[in-house]
Design a protein around this nucleic acid. Structure first.
Lengths: 211, 211, 211, 211
DNA sequence: GAATAACCGAGACGGTACGTCCAGTCTTGAA
DNA sequence: TTCAAGACTGGACGTACCGTCTCGGTTATTC
């Protein structure tokens, strides 16, 4: 998180220098401007110059704290996704799964931060470095959280033992992302319910050997 | 299809004069140059000027026949995907599904044209117009072909009647794209086999009401 | 003269390519804009961006044809100095000298192109490369022309034989430049006349050995 | 004289408080850094940031005491020129003149401070305010000193009465500056001797009316 | 000897201009 | 009419400095 505000204890001991004093005003203005521009004009319409102008900030200030517009948008994503994508806890696997997918569907199709997420996924396809950054800063944590749902189900016995939880996560989230990223089909309630049913069905008994 | 090679009857009756004599040399040189540049330098490294220079072609010639680099790459994709992604016909649903997924996994993770596909999917997230073009020129036809697998399975009784075939397609392809586009996990045989098993399991009996 | 309009016979033989076709509109607009900016805002106020904006020209066009604002101003100087600084021919050494110095004084103190010349002399003190360019493109030719006055005087016998003509040129022009560049004293008629007298006096008999 | 080193008694009467405690270390470090940078990289290579970095001084400290790099260099010039350009007193006009010109030639062509002087003369052509500052802080005093030579000569009768001493100063120094600033010709002994002879010749009898 | 205030280093900030790359349009001359 | 060539306007890039503005820390009087 390159732009974390002086994260952690830097205790700067006896001889420590005061760290660079970053302007929070500038930081927030940049994140908001980037977010706005993305929604209004799309990823290509997000330019450092445009952000600087809209945020009332000098370009140099942006370059001082972020290496690219990708990272700026990553910061906005992380701030926004936190709240919108909490791990559900309804008491049942079916309930957790359904709520998880509904949240995700809503996030991706209706919220500004969802637009940011899609743009970043898109950009990650163009640049391996950015793909890696996306993975580390967003993907890994997301995966860990989503995994909780399946681990709880496993503990409860809702999933047959020995299941590959990564695969189950792909099975649940994959179809949803597939629609948004590729086919453009709607993420409505019918789709979510059908998907939940299929995932539950696929999970209720051990995977057979497919030979 | 902006760059269709002399598409259809261009009418021009008895006195008409052939309006355009498109150089096939130039066309192929452009497509190859774009392809090469994408693989070597990534999407941002594909520029019209770069293509023109490498193809030994004037920029104007490119603009005459293609509206954007997106469409150039789309043309290369369509030429290459045709052969690599044929509809399988093994005689069984499980067989068809597995072969379909293996083909797709190989295409996405090992072939140059797969790189092009990923780049275009990525770019489609940035521009609705290009997303639409992607859908029309690549997505719809793909979906129609893939659907064949499920229609045959339905006819054979391998899938319980009344199933939503779009959903099943999402269920099969989604996890695979999810891995490539988002998590970066490998598309190995274990994954494919597990996925096939789960899809078969989810499909072998009617979807319950999910209440 | 980097921006000479396709100078000379380029006869491009049988296989010759047509040379780059330069826009004269852009060229003149740039030279005028640079000239105007210099007069209005001084040398530091002449910026490539400013010239481009005022000339209605793209920065790239400027960089295509000129390496620096110094060379742009050099071009304007050369175009303007030609007419204003013709070699006088009055029939007498005193007359030639006086007219030469009057022309020069007027040029330096009253004409826009004189401002350009002073700015370039100033800039040449900051950069040896530009000093060299100034010498080659302006100085050498100027010196050759001014020399004519002294050569004629020598031929006529107005100057004692054996005189160092370079020194005489320094003696005539130096005091004038000294005033403009260093002391700021006026270049009025009194000064010119006094200077002419002194030069004539210094020249009317052979330089003694100064031991 | 913006940066006079705690000039004179600053009075501060009975109740006055010493207003500023200027760090001499910083002052000298700045002057040296500026001087070095000028010699190494030329006038454009002298930047406030560069001086600050090299001098180990904060930019603010520089801006506290100097309004511009021009004034910094002016300070270095004044400190260095004092000793190098003393008024000669050889007993004869010819001797004084020759020694004066030799000193000046050496200063301009061989000493670091001469480089500074040339740069400041150059810069003065670009900015009238700086030209004025140059005049006041360097020019006027210089002129007053040089005048002494001619005043002594006048008193001694080496110069015909009624001569315009300003003109004579231009006549002596002008050719020398002309060579350095414009033509780049060498300031060698031959040149100096020839110049001295010409000036003496021009001065030994009253200037005629030049009609 | 403590208080205090100007000085100092460091460097973030809003800006301007730099010189470069590429976009997309236009014009020329050859095939 | 198409093509290679490349000049044109224009927008954004990432960098270098500008001059201003806090920050704490240091230091030299003054109480």
């Amino acid at each position: 998180m390159p732009s974390a505000p002086e994260s952690g204890v830097n205790g700067l001991g006896p001889a420590g220098r005061a760290p660079r004093r970053r302007s929070d005003r500038a930081r927030l203005a940049v994140l908001n401007a980037a977010d706005d521009l993305l929604v209004e004009r799309g990823y290509a319409g997000v330019t450092i110059e445009g952000i600087a102008a809209r945020a009332g900030v000098a370009k140099q200030t942006i370059y001082r704290w972020w290496p690219s517009k990708f990272e700026i948008l990553m910061d906005t994503l992380l701030e926004d996704a936190e709240s919108a994508l909490a791990v559900p806890d309804t008491g049942s696997f079916a309930g957790d799964l359904r709520q998880h997918l509904r949240q995700l569907a809503d996030f991706l199709s209706a919220q500004p931060a969802g637009r940011v997420l899609l743009a970043l996924i898109g950009q990650a396809q163009h640049d391996t470095g950015e793909a890696r950054a996306f993975q580390q800063r967003f993907g890994d944590e997301r995966r860990a959280r989503d995994r909780v749902i399946f681990e709880r189900a496993l503990a409860r016995g809702d999933i047959a033992p020995g299941a590959d939880l990564d695969l189950l996560a792909d099975l649940a989230d994959g179809p949803l992302y597939h629609r948004v990223l590729l086919t453009g089909l709607p993420l409505d309630g019918v789709f979510i319910d059908g998907l939940v049913d299929r995932v539950l069905a696929s999970v209720s008994r051990p995977a057979r050997s497919s030979s």
